[in-house]
Simulated scan of single mutants.
Amino acid sequence: MSGNKLARWSNYVLLSLITFIILYPMLYMVLNALRSTKEIMLYPTRLWPADGFQWSNYAEAFRVGKVSIYLLNSITVTGITLLCQLIVVTLAAYALGKWKPPGHKVLFVLFLATLMITSEMTTIPVFLMLREFELLNTHQGLILAYVGGGIGMAIYLIKNFVDTLPKEVDEAARMDGAGLLRVFWYIDLPLIVPVLAVVTIMSFVGVWSEFFWALITITDDRLKTLPLGLLNFQSQYNTNYGVLLAGLTIVTIPSMLVYLLFSRYFIEGMTAGSIKG
C-alpha cells in the first residue's frame, strides 16, 4: 500500500472514530428514550430495547410533562427571533459592505466592539430596561434580549462576505435601470445565502438551547421555553429515565434537523472566504 493510500485510510479511520465518539452519546439518548426505566437500570450499557420500543415515553412527556406547551413556546420565540435578527443584520451588513454610508467604518467598529462585551456585563442593564418597559415575563421581552445579543457576530460575518461579491454585476444591473433595493433583492441576496445559513444555524442553536435569559425573565409556566420547562420536567421525572430522555431528545432533534437542512450552505459559507478571497 502506497504512502498516499495509507495516509488517506488513516484519515478515514481517525474521522470515523471521532464521529462515533461525538454521535454515540446522542445515539444512546435517542435509543434509551424508547426503553423502560427498569430495563435502563438493569442494562445501562445496552442500546437496542429488548422489550420493544416504549413510544409511551414520548406520549407521557407530551401529556403530563407539558412538553407540547414548552415546545410551541420555543418554536414561537426562536422563529420570531431568527426572522427579526436576519432582517436587521442582513440589511445592516449589506449597507455597510455595499452602500458604505458616511461613517460606515465607525459603525462597523462599534458593532465589532459589542463582541468584547460579555453577557455578564449586560445582564443587569437589559433586565432593568425590560422591567422598565414592562416586558418581563413576556415572549416579547425574551425575543428582544435574544435579537440584540447576536447582532455583532452576524454583521461581522455577513459584511465580510458581502465585501467579496463582484461589483461588475451590480454595475451592469444599475445601468439597466435597477434600483438599489432591486439589486439587493434579485442579485446580491441569492449570493449571500451561504453566509445567511451560517448565521441561521448559529442563532438557532443559541436561541433554541438558551436557558439563562429564559430563567430570569419568564416565571409563568405557560410561557416557559423548552430548556426552562425541562428543568421542572427533570425534577418531576428524575427517576423515570425513559421519559426524561424522551424530553431531552425533543430538545436536541430540532438543532440536528436545522443543521442537516442547511449543512450544504453552511459549508459553502464557512469556506467562501478562502475560495473567493
Rank of each mutant, 00 (worst) to 15 (best):
M256G: 15
Y146M: 11
Y156N: 07
L144I: 13
M1W: 15
L215T: 04
F161H: 14
L231G: 00
N4C: 03
P194G: 09
A145G: 11
C84W: 11
I75F: 15
I75G: 03
A93H: 03
S119D: 14
P254N: 09
L27W: 00
S74I: 07
I75Y: 05
T217S: 04
K98A: 08
D221C: 02
L142C: 10
M129N: 12
S74R: 07
A214P: 02
N73W: 13
L144P: 10
M29Q: 01
V162A: 06
V258I: 15
G149M: 14
F211V: 06
R35A: 07
V162I: 15
G177H: 04
L96S: 01
S16I: 04
V89W: 02
T138H: 09
I21N: 00
F204R: 06
P102N: 04
N11Y: 10
P102L: 09
G273W: 09
V169C: 01
F233P: 04
G141Q: 10
K98R: 13
I22K: 00
V198E: 11
D188R: 10
A93D: 05
R46A: 15
Q236C: 04
D176S: 08
T252R: 00
M256N: 01
Y156E: 04
F262T: 15
L215G: 02
E134D: 11
E134Q: 13
G65D: 12
R264V: 09
L23T: 14
V88W: 09
R35G: 03
G52R: 08
A93G: 15
L245H: 01
I275F: 08
L42Y: 12
S235R: 08
N4P: 00
F133Q: 02
L260T: 12
T90W: 10
G177P: 10
T90V: 01
K100L: 05
T252E: 02
I267P: 06
P125M: 11
G206Q: 03
D170I: 06
I18F: 13
Q234P: 10
I117K: 03
F266T: 09
L231M: 14
G79N: 07
Y265F: 15
F108V: 07
F212M: 05
Y12P: 00
L82R: 03
Y12W: 10
E120C: 00
K167N: 11
D163G: 05
F53G: 01
M116L: 10
R174D: 02
T123K: 13
F204S: 06
R8S: 13
Y186G: 02
Y12K: 01
L96R: 08
S2V: 00
S119N: 07
V195L: 12
E268H: 01
E268N: 06
G229A: 09
I216K: 00
V77L: 13
V195M: 12
A214Q: 01
F262S: 14
K224Q: 13
K167Q: 06
L191D: 01
P194C: 12
M116K: 03
H104F: 14
G152D: 02
W9T: 04
S209Q: 05
G97M: 15
T252V: 02
I143T: 13
